[in-house]
Write a protein that binds this DNA or RNA. Structure first.
Lengths: 224, 224
DNA sequence: CCAATAATGATAGTATTACTATCTATAACA
DNA sequence: TGTTATAGATAGTAATACTATCATTATTGG
């Protein structure tokens, strides 16, 4: 049995739905590869088009500009991760165990999920670490937020906040702690690999150290 | 008595030292205003030159490109803040009180420091919140790090980590906690003002809520 | 099966960005 | 007074970020 995972994206993110054509899927697949390889600043629609074997105009039919495309793939990732979280924490009753599982999912190097044929989640995870916050750190953030472009991120954050609340109903800052967990899972990873003196994780470069740091931080903070 | 605070910057950050000429100081002053107003992406040397009343070539004599200029003003801010931290925590013996003071300095809206005539620290603080992490979230991070461009940030982080270590010598993650404090002081501020559902700080938009969140997080985490 | 429609390819063109180069004028300094 | 550093003025290039147009090829619905 082969199940293809379909993720329905906010229509404002694209001009033409990339999931519904071969060219569209190629755009997503090659964008992820190119952004991963050279970074978002060096990424252009011209290079992407060349890589795919289409023209610049072809890409512009799908996405208004490269920033929208970045928001698209980042939103895709958060939606996919939300699904992973739901799947992996289903049947777990203890909110503490749930929260631990979520921290692990957030901080662990992602492997390619074969049920999504044109997206390499491993590369995508790396992109989120380096480029994710650039989606909202702009002057357009309020407009983009009104268009609900950040909904998947906010939904995940709200979900984590609810579990924190379950762990300790008296804790005052569940949402801020949730966004801290998400951001730090990524920033500590980036620091570990690029600016290691900002972390306590040596050259081992092990996801487990980050998980241990976050577990310690979170469960001491919300301890009843 | 008027004391001008002079901050000595890493020479690799500029081509010609902007502190040593009128034009250089204008470049810094107007850069801060323009980036604050329109964001780093929309900021160009052409617009800056027009704003100042000089030419593009004039700006290029001081800075290689706009990314370097951003790193410069961000590094300037961290150096200035380090000084503020030293000044405000001088004579405090209790590391817990020290750490509280640092959290307050990090999370409080900054007012213009009149002892630096051509830098508006208030605007600069806003810039750091939105643009600060863009200095290192690039493919060039390792090279830039080798050139010591992030030294002021890393020094501040190390300083905070040492105080954490003083508070609790057994705590395992002082550096990661320090970088978490710094980043979250800014991200929670950005979220509060732009994506409030990611925080627990309502429309009051009060720095004190962020300080309370961070105090709670930090002191529960390092409690002996 | 044919006609209408949608998607793609091919090509061209514009304004802006991110620089580099050169030459002149001025100020500063020794 | 002559030399050097700094700034201003102007020009030019390659790349970026788009927009427009027209022909071609698939797709689909009658």
């Amino acid at each position: 049995m082969v199940i293809e995972l379909q993720i329905k994206m906010n229509e404002k993110l694209f001009l033409r739905n990339p999931e519904q054509s071969e060219l569209g899927k190629k755009i997503i697949m090659h964008s992820i590869q190119l952004i991963h390889k050279s970074g978002f600043e060096a990424f252009t629609f011209r290079k992407l088009a060349e890589d795919i074997g289409t023209t610049e105009a072809g890409v512009y039919r799908y996405f208004e500009n490269k920033h929208r495309l970045l928001i698209y793939i980042v939103a895709w990732y958060w939606t996919w991760l939300q699904y992973q979280v739901m799947y992996q924490t289903n049947n777990i009753n203890d909110p503490i165990v749930k929260l631990k599982m979520i921290i692990k999912l957030l901080a662990t190097t992602v492997e390619d999920d074969l049920s999504t044929s044109y997206v390499d989640e491993g590369l995508l995870h790396q992109i989120i670490i380096t480029e994710g916050s650039k989606t909202y750190l702009t002057k357009r953030v309020s407009e983009d937020n009104k268009d609900k472009l950040f909904k998947p991120y906010k939904d995940l954050c709200a979900h984590i906040a609810n579990i924190i609340k379950e762990c300790n109903p008296n804790y005052c800052y569940p949402k801020s702690l949730a966004s801290t967990i998400i951001e730090m899972a990524h920033f500590q990873n980036f620091f570990m690999n690029n600016l290691p003196s900002l972390t306590d994780f040596g050259q081992g470069k092990d996801d487990n150290s980050i998980i241990a740091f976050l577990d310690d931080l979170v469960f001491k903070t919300i301890a009843v």
